[in-house]
Design a protein around this nucleic acid. Structure first.
Lengths: 257, 257
DNA sequence: ATACATTATGCTCGATTATGCAGCTTTCCC
DNA sequence: GGGAAAGCTGCATAATCGAGCATAATGTAT
C-alpha cells in the first residue's frame, strides 16, 4: 500500500491525475500498484464516473469527452500541443535522475504534467516552475537564487550562474525562444542567452522541446547549435517532409508527437 | 502525552504542520502519538476542516486541493483578517527601502495586497511569494536559492543563509508559526527556526504580523523574544484587555486592526 | 464563596464506510 | 461458439464515525 494513498479520496485524486496524464485507467495495473483489490479500484472508478470525471469501460476507464477538463486547455490548440510535448518529454525522464527545467511555458507544462509520485532531483531558476513543483512530494527541489529578471521569471545573474557551475545535470530541458535547423537555439535576451549557455555546459543530455510557433525562427543571441542538442521534441503534423530531412543528423534523436 | 502538545491549539497547529508535510492525517496514528483518544484527534480535525485547512475523510483528513483551498480561503474569515493585517503592514513600508518577506500565508497576503506601482527592493526565500511578486513591475526582486524545504515552500539551507548574510535588510516581515507574549516567536521546523534567526540578525526593523489563531501558542524552536520585535500587528477584537497589558513593552509598537 | 457556564476529554453504542471474497453474469477476442 | 478476463451482486468483517452523556478543570458571575 502506498503511504500517500492511505484514504479512498487520495487514491481517487491520484486516479484523476493519472487519467489526465495517461488518458486512461486500467483496473488490474492500478490494483497492484496501490495494493488493493481490483474491486476497490473499480469502486473508485464508479465514484469518479458519477462525478463525470471519467467514463467507465471494460477493463478500466477513459477520459470523458474532450469538452471537459481545463477550460483554457481546450480553448487553444497551442495548449494542447504543449501538453502532448510535455507528455513526450516526461517519458524521457528516468527515476532518480537530476533534471534541470529552464524557464518557459513549455517547461511549465512539463512540470504541470509530472506524476505526483515521481522521484527525481529537480533544479530550476524559474519561479513559476518551482511554485508548481512544490506539489510533488518525492522530488528534491533546488532553486537557483539571485536577482530576478521579471520578463523571464527567474534569476539569471552571476550568483545564479555561479551556483549552477557547481551542479552536474543529467538532463536539461532548455527553454526555447527561437529555433531553426540551421542556427539551433537562439534567445531574445542577452542575460538569458548567457545563462542558457552556462546551463548547456553543465548538462549531459540536452533536450529541446519546440512548439510549432518557435520553429524556423531566429533571435539575436546564439545559445547552442543543433549539434549540441541530444533530443528534439516536435509536433508531427506541423512539419513538412523537407523540414524533417534537415533534422537527420547523427547524435540527434527526434521525437514526434 | 507530549508536553509541546498540552493544549488543543498547540495540537492543532502541529496537525496543520503535519498535514503540510505528509499531505494527510491518520486519526489512529496521531491518537497514539499524542497520547489522546482518537475521538479527540477527530474533534481537532473537525476544527481544522471548519477553517478550510483540511478535508475530513474516513479515517483522518487530507489536504484540500489548491483549487478548492483558494476558494474556501477567500470566503473564510481567516482571509479577511489576513487582508486587514496585510493592509496595516503595507502602511509601514517606505518607498525605496529593502524589505524581506519570509514564508507564510500572512506574508503571501501582504505581497498580494502590495500596490502595483510600489518601488522597493524585495528579498524573499519563499517561492509562492516570489511568484506573486513577479506581477510588480517596479520592484527589484531578489530570491534566495538553495535546496527547497517543501513544507515551507522555500530554501532554508546553508546556501540560502550564506546569501542572506551578505544582505542588509531595512524591514523584515517574519513568518510566524507560533507567538506568545512570554516566549515571543517560536517555530515548528528546526531548519526554519535557524533560518529565521539568521534573518533577524540581518534586519533593522523586525515586524511580526500575528493572526489570531497563532496567538498564545508555542512551538518547539525559539526564534526571537518579544524584545527583538519592533512592530507587532494584531487583530483587535480577538484580544482581552489583560492580553494587551502583557504587550506594553518599551520599544515595541503594537498596531491593532 | 458558591453556583453556574465553558472547555477539553473520554466512553459507549448503534450507524456508516471501506474493503475483500464468493459465485454468477457479461463482455471480449479468437 | 467457447474460453478467458472482467464485472456485478450480495454478504461478511473490521474499522471508523457521530450523538449523547459523564467527568474534571477552569473561568465567570452573583
Amino acid at each position: 500500500m502506498l503511504d500517500y494513498a492511505a484514504f479512498p479520496k487520495q487514491r481517487q485524486l491520484l486516479l484523476t491525475e493519472r487519467l489526465q496524464i495517461d488518458g486512461k485507467l486500467v483496473c488490474s495495473e492500478l490494483a497492484e500498484e496501490f495494493g488493493v483489490s481490483e474491486h476497490t479500484i473499480r469502486r473508485d472508478i464508479i465514484e469518479l464516473s458519477k462525478l463525470g470525471i471519467c467514463k467507465k469501460v471494460y477493463g478500466g476507464a477513459i477520459v470523458v469527452s474532450p469538452a471537459q477538463g481545463s477550460l483554457a486547455e481546450r480553448a487553444s490548440k497551442i495548449e494542447h500541443e504543449k501538453r502532448l510535448i510535455a507528455q513526450a518529454a516526461i517519458k524521457l525522464i528516468s527515476p532518480g535522475s537530476t533534471i534541470f527545467l529552464d524557464s518557459g511555458t513549455t517547461n511549465l507544462a512539463i512540470v504541470h504534467s509530472l506524476p505526483s509520485e515521481i522521484d527525481i532531483t529537480l533544479i530550476t531558476n524559474s519561479i513559476p516552475i518551482a511554485n508548481e513543483a512544490l506539489r510533488l512530494p518525492n522530488i528534491e527541489l533546488i532553486l537557483l537564487g539571485g536577482k530576478v529578471t521579471k520578463s523571464v521569471g527567474g534569476a539569471l545573474n552571476a550568483d545564479a550562474q555561479n551556483e549552477l557551475s557547481k551542479m552536474f545535470i543529467d538532463m536539461c530541458f532548455i527553454g526555447i525562444c527561437a529555433f531553426s535547423p540551421e542556427h539551433g537555439i537562439t534567445g531574445f535576451n542577452y542575460d538569458d542567452a548567457c545563462f542558457k549557455r552556462a546551463l548547456v555546459k553543465q548538462s549531459g543530455q540536452l533536450i529541446a522541446a519546440v512548439s510549432h510557433e518557435k520553429y524556423e525562427t531566429i533571435a539575436k543571441h546564439k545559445v547552442v547549435g543543433l549539434e549540441g542538442i541530444s533530443d528534439l521534441i516536435l509536433c508531427k503534423e506541423k512539419l513538412s517532409r523537407k523540414q524533417l530531412g534537415e533534422l537527420n543528423i547523427s547524435g540527434l534523436a527526434v521525437h514526434l508527437v
